[in-house]
Structures are given as structure tokens and as C-alpha cells.
């Protein structure tokens, strides 16, 4: 009895140590990838190529989602606000919701599903086909050559995507609110401008998306780098990327919201 209890505790301890060790590995990995980037003449084109694949190619899904979310917000907001006779506050509601929460969060979730999983699978496959090993044997550090451009591209792309998401959402909200439901356009923008502040809302949202960008890309690239190089291993790593990224985004969002908007 006592021994099985001890076994349980020991197992728990081992798991805890495993988690800490993998956190440590992930940290060392990030450090190794970001410190000492390749020469600009080599690194620049690599970075641009990755921004293209990670950022530009995610643009379509981000724009479409942003448009629909903005339109849904307008519809839902209108129904609720018209009960109080304050439909004109719809612009304020849409803008604040998008800038503070939905823009960064939904973009990050889409990013994890669209770009993050692709990153993990790609790097995992490069590992499985010994491309990373062969790079190492050629005297090229794959952390700097392969991981660093992808990490930076993710860090840069996420805020840009989130900004575009918010703008498209605000525009979609106007489409439904003003064009369809007949809210006066002047009060749509006027209420928005009166309540949205640049430093608190726009910049805080930007900070959020920056943080999410770092978290999602780090998780995706590291999961690919650390995966078991078999087909089952890559598929498990891809799943982990999406699950961990989503949970991490939502958890971080709570923390950041509490820090930024919590009234203490």
C-alpha cells in the first residue's frame, strides 16, 4: 500500500521534472535560434520567404473571418442595444470587442491552426528526412538557418494579421450596422472615436497579439524540432501544437486582460 503510494508520488515527481526539462529545452532552443542570426544577405531573403508563407498566406482566412465576426457582432449588438434604444453605441461595442479581445485572440487561434500546424509538420518532416542533420553536418546550424527565420516571421506576422483582422471586422460591422440595419454612419464612427483610445485599446491589443505571436510560433517551431521523427510522431506534434497554442493563447489572454484592463 505504502509502496504503491510512493510509486505514485515518484511518478508524479518524474512527470513534473519531465515538464520542467522540456520547458528548459524549449528555452535553450529559443535562445539558440534567436541569438546570432545569419548574415543579413542570407537571412533577409529567408525571413521574407517565411513571412510570405506564414503571414501572407494566412491573410485570406484572417480577412474572411474578420469580416464575418464584425458582421455577427453588429447583428448581435444591434439586437441587444436596441432594447435600450442605444443602437448608435454599436460602433463602440464592435470596435472595443475587436481591438481588445477578438482581434488578437481569434487571429492567434486561426494562426495556430493555419500556420502553426504547418510549421510543426514541415520542421518535423525535415527532421524525419534528415535534412536538419545534414545541415548540421554541412556546418550550418539549423537553429539559425531554419528555425530563426520562421520564429521571426511568426513574431512579425501575427500583429500585422491581428491589425488587419480588426480593421476588416470594424468595416464588416459598419457594413451590417450602417448599410443594412440603418444606424447613422456619423454616430457609428463618432461613438467609436469617443470611447476607443489609442494607447489603451489599440496598443494593448497590439501588445496582446505580439505576445500571442511569440507563444504560438515558439510552440509550433519547437514542437516540430523536438518531435519524434516518425509519421506518428509528427502527427502527434502537430496536434500538440494546435492544442497547446490554443490553450496558451486563451490563458495568456486572461492574464493580459487582467493586467491591462482589470480595474485595480
Amino acid at each position: 500500500m505504502a509502496s504503491s503510494l510512493m510509486d505514485g508520488i515518484a511518478r508524479l515527481g518524474r512527470r513534473g521534472l519531465d515538464i520542467i526539462a522540456s520547458l528548459g529545452r524549449a528555452g535553450v532552443f529559443l535562445w539558440g535560434a534567436l541569438v546570432g542570426a545569419p548574415r543579413p544577405s542570407v537571412g533577409g531573403p529567408l525571413l521574407i520567404q517565411q513571412i510570405y508563407r506564414i503571414g501572407v498566406l494566412s491573410l485570406a482566412i484572417v480577412i474572411v473571418s474578420g469580416l464575418f465576426i464584425g458582421m455577427v457582432l453588429a447583428l448581435q449588438g444591434y439586437t441587444i442595444l436596441s432594447d435600450f434604444g442605444s443602437e448608435s453605441a454599436i460602433g463602440q461595442m464592435i470596435a472595443l470587442t475587436l481591438l481588445r479581445e477578438l482581434g488578437p485572440v481569434v487571429t492567434a487561434l486561426l494562426f495556430a491552426g493555419r500556420a502553426g500546424s504547418a510549421l510543426t509538420a514541415e520542421i518535423g518532416l525535415m527532421k524525419a528526412t534528415e535534412q536538419l542533420s545534414s545541415m548540421e553536418m554541412m556546418g550550418v546550424d539549423p537553429l539559425r538557418r531554419v528555425m530563426a527565420p520562421r520564429l521571426w516571421a511568426g513574431f512579425i506576422s501575427m500583429p500585422v494579421l491581428a491589425l488587419i483582422f480588426s480593421v476588416v471586422g470594424v468595416w464588416g460591422g459598419m457594413l451590417v450596422g450602417v448599410e443594412w440595419l440603418g444606424v447613422f454612419e456619423g454616430s457609428y464612427w463618432g461613438n467609436m472615436q469617443a470611447s476607443v483610445t489609442f494607447a489603451d485599446d489599440v496598443l494593448n491589443g497590439l501588445v496582446k497579439s505580439l505576445v500571442f505571436g511569440v507563444a504560438c510560433t515558439w510552440i509550433a517551431v519547437y514542437q516540430g524540432y523536438d518531435c519524434v521523427p516518425t509519421s506518428a510522431g509528427i502527427s502527434a506534434a502537430t496536434t500538440r501544437t494546435v492544442v497547446f497554442s490554443s490553450l496558451m493563447v486563451l490563458g495568456l489572454d486572461f492574464v493580459l486582460t487582467a493586467v491591462m484592463f482589470g480595474s485595480f
Binding site: A95, L163, S166, M192, A194, V196, T197, V202
Partner: peptide, 8 residues
Amino acid sequence: LALQVSGL
């Protein structure tokens, strides 16, 4: 966002 939405 700065000019049109937050009226900065």
C-alpha cells in the same frame, strides 16, 4: 485604427 477608430 489610430485615426478613424480611436480618433487619435
